[in-house]
Write a protein that binds this DNA or RNA. Sequence first.
DNA 1: CTCAAGGTTTAGATGGGGCTAAAATATACT
DNA 2: AGTATATTTTAGCCCCATCTAAACCTTGAG
Lengths: 219, 219
Amino acid sequence: MSTKTIEDYLKHIYQLQEHTDQVTTSAIAQRMDVSAASVTDMIKKLSERGYLHYTPYRGVELTPEGRGLALNVLRKHRLWEVFLVEYLDFPLHQVHEEAEDLEHLPSTELVQRLDKLLGYPRIDPHGDPIPTADGTIEDQHGRLLAHAQPGQSARIVRVSDTNPELLRYLESIGLVPHTEIQIKSRAPFEGPMVVEVDGVEHSLGNTVMNHIFVNIHPR
Amino acid sequence: MSTKTIEDYLKHIYQLQEHTDQVTTSAIAQRMDVSAASVTDMIKKLSERGYLHYTPYRGVELTPEGRGLALNVLRKHRLWEVFLVEYLDFPLHQVHEEAEDLEHLPSTELVQRLDKLLGYPRIDPHGDPIPTADGTIEDQHGRLLAHAQPGQSARIVRVSDTNPELLRYLESIGLVPHTEIQIKSRAPFEGPMVVEVDGVEHSLGNTVMNHIFVNIHPR
DNA sequence: CTCAAGGTTTAGATGGGGCTAAAATATACT
DNA sequence: AGTATATTTTAGCCCCATCTAAACCTTGAG
């Protein structure tokens, strides 16, 4: 239904490229919830416009121009997320969706002024780095909580923004960026982990652990 | 090129309806900078959806639903204008154009929270009234500056937002809402008017006078 | 009261993004 | 290597907003 723009495609391709190494038609289709045929069509267009290299049946690779556009969208998205939290008091789990519309506002002056209002933030409310106006971006912070060991203490630096339900749960127990936690125990064979947050213990399953990134404190 | 939405049509029709009494196809086309044929098409669609009544070759009249949608767009537009001025320090002459994009953000929660952040303002930076969430709107304030008489003093309550160039000029000499002025003289036959603003005298032609609305102080 | 002028509507086409179904190609397994 | 399965692309169609050119009213002036 809702129609996707060139910017949307580039953004999602960029984000796929971050984690997987083959960005396939079907991966894009699945992520964006459109048909594979639509993706093929759009890829042709993006290729003609010089945003990516396209080898039929093979996959896709962003050109510097494509990457630049993608990072600009991401920049707008994440700056607006900061605004939504800091000025409009939106709960964390809602900002991603709201920012999906805001990120497409074309005015560069608007973004510049927003960036200034917010004090040139480096990360968004989920802990994701905000690309700069000249198209650079820091690496994502933190290691998966799943890699932490019992007895260690850590600071949450990032949470995945992909699942609003899960995010709502994390919020409700205080598992958000900047929070300090202690890892109490871990059941064997990738079992649940018990962590202490704000003096309260919680048992976390694998899915949850894989949405949380931490800096582990040296002892 | 830039494609107009249903909301755009309703907004412009509403604003035409405020000042003229026959809202014709060509008036809409001219105002929106699209062809008359496009307007005819769109009018048919809007009529089918119950937003207006349409008599071919005659003109158009908004239904309560159409008016409601139009006022909602206007509400969003004007609230964002307040934000652009108060939080992002945009100059007055730029906010109208920037708000043209912001007004189409669909989220009602976003608007509600914005309204709260701004302190539930009643007027936008040009002095135009902001419709309420339940679809009511105050009458526009002020009388044309052209109607004021030499010797009177007045407060500017509203300036037209239609001409950015002119607005830029008004801004540069301080002729913006809330400013106090004195009418010094007026040349005969609709001639130029001399007004004092912030201790400086300016001679204003008819076009300028017809973009400024004032409350004249009793003596 | 006719008819030309001018505003309005229809006809037919474009470009953007989307879809399903069928054809083409790649991969993976025996 | 050969074939079955899975992925990708093509073909053909839809919807939306737009345009130009041509046909169609309305109206107002002679």
